[in-house]
Design a binder for these strands. Structure first.
Lengths: 107, 107
DNA sequence: TATAATTACTTACATAAAGTAACTAACTGA
DNA sequence: TCAGTTAGTTACTTTATGTAAGTAATTATA
């Protein structure tokens, strides 16, 4: 019954993007490098999962981690070229949401 | 610390798209109406979760469910206008995956 | 000197989501 | 009456996520 086999690369992309929080993390980083605690508080993700996601995205070469040995230490997360290449997709989600989603979802 | 508040409509869109399987279900339906068992077998999702997702997408008015009282009964799922409006986003993921993901991820 | 503060995490535990496999309902054809 | 078909549902297990406290490294403060 496996009629329409899905392109494995598309499937992979989807499996990355359809993990909880991943899209939002990338979206936040589109506006520039961010620190751990800044991401944590601006999107309401738990530190435990944020830590996981950043590691995964680093492994995928979508996010880059840079350490600045100041006091206290500063660590910045930013997008790689591969990560920035996701901007057009983000823009399309943005457009769709503005066209099709109500302004007040659940008051 | 909630510096950069995220647009609630974008956040909502992301929360829909970042649920496991949701993107793939929509992607499959872009090629035309599909039946439950066809979706189930073509993407390897469990019936339990597929059932959940289709209900959610119906509630969001992204998917339409139609019953044909044949024998045995035929039920078709298809995209609404709101659902089809996600095609540009899907195309962008497709493009990204073809540009940035390797052909053989894990042999 | 001890205590507190800061950042970037990790750990242990609890809850929610997803996978598995068997089961049901409604119908028909043998 | 029994088997076959589709579209699910149910009970149970495994995995993912949330919560809250803890750690390491460093400096500032009482």
């Amino acid at each position: 019954m496996d009629q329409s086999a899905i392109c494995p690369r598309f499937e992979k992309a989807m499996s990355i993007m359809s993990q909880r929080w991943t899209g939002l993390v990338i979206y936040q980083l589109l506006t520039g490098p961010k620190r751990f605690c800044s991401l944590e508080s601006s999107m309401g993700i738990s530190g435990r999962v944020l830590s996981d996601r950043l590691k995964e995205l680093e492994n995928q070469d979508i996010v880059k981690r840079e350490v600045y040995p100041e006091t206290p230490v500063r660590i910045e997360y930013s997008l790689t070229e591969k990560g920035r290449a996701l901007e057009p997709m983000m823009k399309e989600i943005e457009k769709w949401s503005q066209t099709w989603l109500p302004v007040e979802p659940t008051p």
